[in-house]
């Protein structure tokens, strides 16, 4: 028996999936959830084999939910938005169903899911869809982190700076810091480049929090932030700052 859950904030959308699944006797629906938080908890508790996941939802989006999981489940995205296909493909999703979709298209996705249960491989269908869409780099407006069992949603404007720590990034706020498994390069690409500057190999700084630049040694500067933190600025970092802040 294959255990599946449905996460979608709209009742009719959930009804449709359960109806499409009714012909597949080997799949049982272990639960239906209407927002990102309860969906996340359900994946952790129920450990489903297959997740039907909407993207635009209250509390947490489908992508934010996945970021918080240690292990990637088999995901079939169901959404009205086509612009997230590339990201779905990168996440090695089983399939990406564009609302509204037919029973045939839905069954195709399930065939891929069976395939996935044996050997994980990227769907060619998503690949095709992804290639159709220009690579529009999505700019983050919030970042989700896990602290113990709690989930914190951080608006990017409240981030002071980020520090790289091997495979992790430490996110510093005025009232604490949070570790996230992600690369600096990712944040450099997905945070608003007019606000966040890579001032050093290890630091990505929100320029609105920089209070002043102090001359440290000959030709090296330290950035003093609003919370008093002092960060080394590299040569390239200094040039980037100069270009952006126009001093």
């Amino acid at each position: 028996m294959i255990k599946a859950i449905i996460i979608d904030d709209e009742q009719p959308a959930r009804d449709l999936i359960s109806h499409y699944l009714s012909g597949h006797k080997d799949i049982e629906i272990a639960g239906q959830f209407a927002d990102g938080f309860t969906g996340l908890k359900a994946i952790q508790d129920l450990k489903p084999d297959l997740v039907f996941l909407d993207i635009q939802m209250p509390k947490l989006t489908g992508f934010e939910l996945l970021e918080l999981l240690d292990e990637m489940p088999n995901i079939i995205f169901t959404t009205a938005y086509d612009q997230f296909a590339i990201k779905a493909f990168e996440l090695n999703a089983v399939d990406y169903l564009l609302k509204p979709y037919s029973q045939e298209r839905f069954d195709q996705a399930l065939v891929k899911a069976y395939d996935h249960f044996q050997h994980k491989k990227a769907s060619t269908e998503i690949k095709k869809l992804a290639n159709h869409i220009a690579d529009n780099q999505e700019i983050l407006d919030r970042v989700v982190v896990k602290t113990g069992s709690k989930i914190k949603v951080i608006p990017v404007d409240s981030i002071l700076y980020l520090e790289s720590q091997d495979d992790y990034v430490m996110i510093y706020l005025t009232d604490g810091k949070f570790l996230k498994q992600q690369t600096m390069k990712y944040f450099e690409q997905h945070l608003d480049a007019t606000k966040f500057v890579r001032i050093h190999r290890s630091y990505l700084v929100n320029i609105n929090t920089i209070k002043q630049l102090e001359l440290y040694e000959k030709n090296t500067y330290m950035a003093v932030l609003s919370n008093g933190a002092k960060l080394r600025v590299s040569d390239t970092g200094y040039k980037a700052l100069k270009g952006l802040m126009k001093f």
């Binding site: 709209e10 009719p12 959308a13 009804d15 449709l16 109806h19 009205a80 609302k99 509204p100 979709y101």
Partner: peptide, 8 residues
């Protein structure tokens, strides 16, 4: 999304 609801 509305069309999907109708489909359902």
């Amino acid at each position: 999304n509305s069309l999907n609801s109708i489909s359902s």
